[in-house]
Amino acid sequence: MNMEDKLVGDLKKNEQILQIVSVEDIQKERNLKSRTKDASAWVAPVKDSVDAAKLIREFGIKPKKVVVKNYAGKQYIIFKGYPGARKVLRGTRYLADNPKVVRMAVGPKGVIKSVKSGFVITVVLSVGIEIYDHFINDATTLSEFLGTVTSDLVKIGLSSIAAAAAGLAVGSAAVIGSIAAAPLIAAIAVGVVTGLLLNHIDKKFGATAALIKAYEDLGVKLREIKYEATRTYNYLENNPGALMRLFGGPGIFYGGY
């Protein structure tokens, strides 16, 4: 290979591509990320609100009674009022896990299913946005990505648990449990409020920053472990008799004793 080809080869190996981006473009990208994340926080409550609207359409704005009762070890949802006026739940009694009842988010299983699907949607959107941001933004480290995603998952999980507890409690309570949309409204309210409170706590105590620091420290420790392991392996490779000497065997290759 002549010198010119070698020079070209070296230049290609060390090639770096720089993209000069204006401050306005960077700001646009950051605004897009924050607007998308803000919108993703609305998806679950909007979905629950649509479910609540379906319930009101089905049962009417003047509520007919919805009663949860246990008979012979099974849980039933009993609908009072004129069944002919309803389009989906035309019967008067359904098992609590009846697919129609669960789909309409009525009763305890319906509320839990609604909260679960809201949790999944919010997790997928939130983590997806962080993955996109991690790939687009060169300055974001893996520790920052992992710390932010862990923090998001914990907050979404706790909000969902609180929302499910509120929905179940309201759905089983006297009088208000008979209002079809009340459990969903309670779940939406508690989910939103819990998310906000967890955010305030995170800002005040720096929980996400601590998680990122923990991941950074873990990364440093893993690099140290990897370095020591590689060093030991290289030493053993270059000194095959060392293992034998370590376990007290004769040093066959180096004269022994």
């Binding site: 932010t148 998001d152 907050k155 998310g195 955010n199």
Partner: peptide
């Protein structure tokens, strides 16, 4: 200005 203390947010609004 953006609040530098806020790294992760799942709730409505912005700090």
């Amino acid at each position: 200005c953006d609040d530098p203390r806020e790294i992760s947010r799942i709730a409505k609004g912005a700090s």
